[in-house]
Design a protein around this nucleic acid. Structure first.
Lengths: 149, 149
DNA sequence: CCCATTTAGTTACCATGATAACATAAATGG
DNA sequence: CCATTTATGTTATCATGGTAACTAAATGGG
């Protein structure tokens, strides 16, 4: 996360950009993007917490749900779609199972693996969270970059 | 953080956008921005780790260093510039002090407070990290949004 | 002046990201 | 076919973000 309120001065950026052949405009836009994204993610985290979810828990539900021809995915498949580390995926799936949002069954074809599927409650939770999620994304991008925060 | 590789389909976004009067383009750009910023932050974290720092530790050094008329700042002042929670600031300053990058002295004027100042080592560490930091920011913004990750 | 409120910092605890090291199962190759 | 290698998932541990509740000091109204 990146929460610096006052970005490095143009002079500071310019000095280093000159020395290393970097583009000061690129640096400034990178800093602005990181701050804006961090604030958006922070807002989303608060939204998800109010729904008993988190960014990652929400994304896991989405990737299982949106698979057209499958009812379940393996933890490995889910991790490959979200590119988060395996231990984080293990922990997240276990907590989703404990909360009744997914089922975790042993795989029939590979004894090392599992099959994660949405429960009715998980599907409902996802549907409940989606509108507000997209509304927040739309709102945040509709306003000027530095308004509030 | 936000590490979803395949963003929600245009159809899914469009459906919710239509219902809630949101702008699909805003939603898509928000998702792209979050992913791009998350990958950049991840890369910076790796860079800082290799320098014995972290995003926050680096930012703390910067805000102390760039104060024109002051040699030290209070934890509260630093926190207000970076807008991170107080407990995180407490922990970060203590670890910076343990590593010899800052000094923490009792305030003369307010017995509740402290004064954080850069040590020579802290100033050096900051100078060492700055060029690579700006170089990474410049590089990442120079290439197309979805190239690699 | 004194009690109530506010402010600064800390402690305790939790969530979520990472890596390293491990167990077990599958795949591969001599 | 068995031994080695590869793949899947877990455990243990750490880093860094948060809130709630606390202590101690400053501030302010009666």
């Amino acid at each position: 996360m990146f929460f610096l309120k006052e970005l490095p001065s143009q002079q500071m950026v310019g000095t280093y950009a000159e020395i290393y052949g970097a583009d000061p405009a690129h640096i400034t836009s990178a800093l602005l993007m990181m701050r804006r994204a961090s604030l958006l993610i922070r807002r989303l985290d608060a939204y998800f917490a109010a729904h008993g979810l988190s960014q990652l828990r929400f994304l896991v539900l989405i990737v299982i749900d949106r698979e057209p021809e499958r009812k379940s995915l393996t933890p490995n498949e889910i991790a490959s779609r979200i590119d988060v580390s395996k231990p984080v995926m293990t922990r997240t799936l276990q907590s989703l199972q404990q909360d009744g949002l997914i089922s975790l069954a042993a795989s029939q074809t590979d004894k090392r693996s599992k099959e994660a599927a949405l429960t009715a409650e998980g599907r409902q939770q996802l549907q409940d969270a989606l509108p507000g999620y997209f509304r927040i994304l739309s709102e945040e991008m509709a306003r000027p970059p530095d308004a509030g925060g």
